[in-house]
Structure formats: C-alpha cells, structure tokens
Design a protein around this nucleic acid. Structure first.
Lengths: 250, 250
DNA sequence: CGGTAGTTTGAACTACGTCAAGGGTCGTGG
DNA sequence: CCACGACCCTTGACGTAGTTCAAACTACCG
C-alpha cells in the first residue's frame, strides 16, 4: 500500500490587511469581466471597492443575510454551500481568485441564498450591488462577460444535476476529483495535486454522499494506485483510469 | 378511493404556421427582457426572427448539435434534458411561453449541451446567436435583464442540487409538484391543475428517480387525498400537506 | 508528547432500484 | 359507436448501493 505523506498542500497565509492597492489593481485587471476596461476606468472602479480578510473557516456571509454586496476573490479559496435541516451541508461551488459571487442581480432575492465560507485564508474584494449595477449600465461589454460566466456556471450546475441523477457515488467522486484537478491541479512529486485543503467531509458535501462513503471510495482509489491522499489533501496519479470510471457521461 | 377522471389538461393545438406577425409582436413585447424596448425597436428585432412549429415529442435540437440559435417559446411547453448512456433521460427544465433557451453565450460551447423536446404542440421563435449578441451590445438594459434571468435559473439549479443531495424521493416529488403548480397551475374543479401533460416517466426524470417510485409516491399522495391524478395529469388539492412533506428545506 | 480533528473500517439496516406481471385509459379504425 | 391495440400506470417481490452507527486508528498542532 502507498505510504501516506505529509500534507503537500501549500498553506495560504493572508494577513488581515494584505490586499495592497497594487494587488487589488492587479486582480481587477485580471478578472475576466473587467479585462475589457481601460486602466483609468479600473482605477475608478477600484475606488468603490472594499477589501476584507478572512481566516480559514470564517463565514463571509450566511444564507438569509441581506445580499448587499458582490464579492471577488483576490486570494484564497471560498466554498458556497447550503445548509440542511439535518445539519448536513451541500457544497455548490468552490471558488478561486478572480471569481465572483454574492449579490449578483438586483431583481432576484434580496438576501443571499447560499452561505460563503473561507476554506483558506482569504482576501476578498467587495462592491455594493448598486455600484456593480452602475458599472453594468455604463459598460455593456462587462455585462456580456458576466452573462457568459453565469451561463457557464448554469451549465456546470446542470452537469452536477445530471451526475446526481444518473451516476453512482464512485462515478461522482471520480468526476469531482477530475473537475477539481482541472481547476486547482498543480504538478507535484506525489501526483497532480489538488491545491486546496479538502476533507472527506467536504468531498462528501460536493458529491451528495456521506464522509464514510467518500472515504471508502477514496481508499479504494488509493489501493488501486490511482491517487495519493492524506489528511485533507488528494493528488491524482492515473487520470486515465479515473476518467474511465467517471465517464459514462460526465 | 378517489375515482380517476378524464384528462383535464387542455390540449394545445398549434398549426404548423400559426405564429402570425401579430402574435409574434405580442410575444416579443411580453418577453421580460425585451419589455424595456420601444415598439419600433421590437419590430426591427422581429425582422431577424424566424419561427417554427413542432408537434408533441418533436425535438427542437439535440445535445451536440451546433448551437447557432437562441429560442423563445411563443406557445406550448418545451423540456430541456440530457441523455444518459443507460438511456435514462434527465430533465433539467420545463419551459413555457416567454422563456428562452438554446445558444445563449458566445464564449461557451459552440454546441448545445442539452436536448430540447416539445411536450405539446409548440411555436418557437428563434434568432441567431450573432443577432442576439448584436441586440445585447446595442441595448445594455436587455443584457442586464437576461443576466438576471440566467442568475435566477442558476439559483433554481442550485435548489435542485440541494434537493438531490439531501432529500428523499418523496420530498423531491412533493417539492417538484409544488414548483410545477406555481409555474403552471390553473384552478380547476379537480384541484390546482398542472397545466401540461406529464407522465410518471417524466416526473421521474425531473426528480432523479424511477417511474415505479414516482408512481408509488403519487399513488400514496392520492390515497391521502392530497392530489388528484390520472394518465399524464396531476392536480394538487392539499398544498399545505405537500409543503409540509417537501419542506425540511426547499 | 498529548489532545483534537480527521480518517478508516466493520456490521446492520433501509430507501430505492430492478424485474415482472397485470390493469386502466385513450386514440384509431372498422 | 364500439372494439382493439398501444401506451401508460400500478403493484408486488426481491436485490443492493449507500447510509447509519460505532469504534479504532492516525496526522497534525500546540
């Protein structure tokens, strides 16, 4: 059996007041939907933006809070989730720097429908709903970019629904690992490392199963030599086999 | 036991070439995201629109086809679905007049990711992706409307994921019936009638279960006097109890 | 080096899927 | 208008993937 190793996931250390103006501008330029704007315009937008740091496990907001801000991640990982009466959470998305979330539309609900929680130290930029609306009104190209991004997320959500409807826990877990690797994967001596802390519990929240079942499947994958894993980390080794397992339609 | 009745769902008879110019303009005015435009502008847009009729069971397009058009329903019901290798379909949405679907964004996949099938006779309006892009560029307000609608669908998809992850088949079916009634419900002597033909098979496709399980749950609801049902129709009687059943979160 | 949080594994249980047979409803054609 | 056939729905019996409960084990942190 493969010997377990120390956690290779790189820690993200974000001090409370890290986001320097330079970093903020850098992030804003990098954000897909502001990319089309001129530098001066972005500096103007920068004036409307607030920043805030969070520690791992901190909640950025809870479902039901008044949805007055749109967030953009500058650094760290954030998960979007819903709570269940039974206390079991459902993870809907895992976001990385450059991605946005929170109060997007004016017309829809005035409270957040999901909870946002930091998985690592996080630096988040935020802008008021109204401020964001103003930008959308002044820059149609930004609106189209945002539309495309939201449409892509809708497709991803439909993928998930499809998986939950038609696939086994093993298939969903394999598919989720591949998806995570595509988004967060970093080459590493132990394999293609999923660069975020991720417990069996959280993997279960993503795949609509229990921590026990996630553990059993992960253990089997490890026994097969398809992955390397440890406490809160997973690295993929045999992508081909995982794909084969997940496949029967993503 | 409640005696079963003849199908009270009103047939939609759409002749191949039904969409008169008047009806088209009427629909276009009614469509939420064109509502903000002036009449002359809508007539201009009307020039770019093609119409097509479909019979029940017809496919408007298949997943994998080149996604060159955006559709708007003028009349009828359309279901969006994905196919499974096992031949079991997964229904992702059920659309009514005024709703749009198809090739929405330019940046995302150039082929349709879902299949669209007519549940009834359907009259659909279509516009090319490029044509729609042009409208978006010229009318920022339209883009924002569309963004809000897509964001609302994303929320709905997240609701579904939540349900599939955390609820029993009975709860999901109760929730789905209530959702359908909110969208398609019409007061009727037999109860709040879900105004579309819907088989146990299709209900199963919507709730990630099998026709047999859907039938068992529906039969139980009927025995309890919560609904009235028959071949391809369902009417709700005791909303309160259904809500109670579904509840434990959406 | 001890404690906490995360992980693994086993054994019993259950909601649901599968397979199969029978019955009701509707449309069509005589 | 009736009768036949196709399609849809129902119900039962059985199998199983996955949950639940519980206990032991291990990585990591202070």
């Amino acid at each position: 059996m493969i010997k377990r190793r120390k956690n290779p996931v790189e820690m993200i250390h974000t001090e409370p007041n890290l986001c320097s103006t330079d970093l903020r501008l850098h992030i804003l330029h990098g954000v897909p939907f502001f990319a089309s704007l001129e530098h001066t315009k972005i500096e103007e937008i920068n004036q409307q933006i607030h920043e805030k740091g969070f520690k791992p496990g901190d909640y950025l907001y809870f479902a039901g809070d008044p949805a007055d801000s749109l967030f953009i991640i500058a650094e760290g990982r954030v998960k979007l989730l819903r709570h269940t009466t039974a206390g079991k959470d459902v993870m809907l998305d895992l976001l990385i720097p450059g991605e946005f979330f929170g109060g997007l539309s004016t017309s829809s609900s005035s409270t957040y429908l999901e909870t946002a929680q930091a998985l690592t130290s996080v630096c988040a930029l935020s802008i008021s709903r109204e401020g964001f609306r103003t930008i959308l009104n002044q820059h149609p190209a930004v609106g189209i970019q945002v539309l495309d991004l939201v449409a892509a997320r809708l497709e991803a959500a439909h993928d998930t629904i499809h998986q939950l409807s038609a696939q086994t826990a093993e298939q969903r877990i394999a598919a989720t690992l591949l998806m995570l690797a595509a988004k967060l994967g970093e080459p590493h001596e132990v394999g293609l490392l999923i660069q975020t802390p991720l417990s069996r519990d959280e993997l279960a929240e993503m795949t609509a199963t229990t921590p026990e079942t996630a553990s059993r499947v992960i253990s089997q994958f490890q026994r097969d030599g398809w992955i390397a894993t440890g406490r809160k980390w997973i690295a993929l080794i045999r992508l081909e086999e995982l794909l084969q397992t997940a496949e029967m339609k993503v």
